[in-house]
Simulated scan of single mutants.
Amino acid sequence: MGEKTTPARREGIPLGRIAGIPVILAYSWFVIAAFTVIVYGPVLRENNPALGVAAYTVAFAYAILLLISVLVHELAHALTAKIYGWPTQKIVLNLWGGHTQFENFTATPGRSVLVALAGPAANFALAGGAWLVLSGSSLPSVAELLTNIFMWANLLIGIFNVLPGLPLDGGRIVESAVWKATGSQAKGTVAAGWAGRVIVVALGFWFLARPVLAGETPELSLLMITVLVGGFLWMGASASIQQGTMRGRLHLVNAAALARPAVGIPNTSTVSDVLRLSPTGVPAVVVCGPDGRPQAVVDAPAVAAVPPHATSSTPVTAVSYALGAGAYVPEWSKGQELIQYLGQLEGQEYAVVDHRGTVTGLLAQDVVVAAITGKSVRPNRYPQRQNR
């Protein structure tokens, strides 16, 4: 998820590992850092004239504190997941804050909620710690200013993330509640995605529509933040709805059920053997090597083009196109397991074999996609012949 090896595009700057988890600073983070300096630098300078141009340095320090807050938030997710044996692939800090990318794991409604809410809980803990520092000691003006910003930032991050809609952490509460009630995680994900869309509409009304209706003009910075955050949340909510819908259709992805009938034939056969087994092109004919493994698929139009007097002398390899390397699957494969396996194979067709390794079907990639998405497709029954 052999191929030609190409250099992997770096998604950011590696910051090292924490608890064995790679942490990456995406290049897009510098956009939000610049935005913070440009927008809040002048505000800090106006409210604190003694700072002078140092106000922009303080604004950049504010961006760094936000970065640290997000990192702690994502680490809380990852370390809580580690308790349940869920492996974390990496943490990425980016324009939108950050995300923790997990490897494959088996979740339950309760564990899903605990892992999700660990992030906001960490931010509330940071906000509480900053409040204690502000309450218990007298700090220099800049330190007090940054600590106060740090406290409010973490409080807002925590509150924002517990809103009940995906892709926010609080959306896992909605997902898990529906999941628990219906027994379907897919239905929970779809419901939480729609809840996320409702949150976007509510935010748009509160921060944009409401001031306009009251005859006020929203501040430019608030307008930009609302549009950016709202756009991000809407895309995340829509992706969750799509993901949940597709997950709900996984039971339809079954190699034996989706494959069209096929038979295997040795690569030493001729066109006359093909016509004997499949005179009308049905079932499909798969060419197998000496070890019995599928190698190619007979191209029915090419067979039809062979003159009758030449069928017994024309090798089957002359009227077939190659399958991708290892492009065959057990007929009992289904669901997520089948999708992940197909994702590692080349080509658009896969032979289906039984327990004895005998070819029983031919599975087309577009048929699998149609089963997952629910969108009807018109498969090309006789794919264009490929160069071997």
Rank of each mutant, 00 (worst) to 15 (best):
R9K: 13
I13E: 10
R17D: 08
Y27W: 12
W29E: 00
F30C: 00
T36G: 06
A50H: 14
L51V: 02
G52L: 05
A55R: 01
T57P: 06
T57Y: 07
L65I: 10
L66C: 12
V72M: 13
E74V: 05
Q89N: 09
V92K: 08
N94S: 08
G98Y: 01
L117E: 02
A118L: 05
A122N: 03
G136R: 02
P140V: 15
P140G: 15
T147M: 14
I157P: 01
N161C: 04
V178P: 06
W179H: 09
W179R: 13
K187Q: 11
T189N: 08
F205V: 09
V212M: 10
L220C: 00
L222M: 10
L223H: 00
L228S: 07
Q242T: 11
T245L: 07
L252R: 06
N254C: 14
G264I: 08
D273Y: 12
S278H: 04
A284H: 14
C288H: 05
V298L: 08
P307E: 11
T311I: 13
T314E: 15
T314Q: 12
G324Q: 06
A327E: 01
E331D: 15
W332H: 13
K334H: 11
G335I: 01
E337V: 13
L338M: 11
I339K: 15
Q340Y: 09
Q344K: 08
E346A: 14
V353R: 01
T360M: 06
K375I: 13
Y382W: 12
Y382M: 03
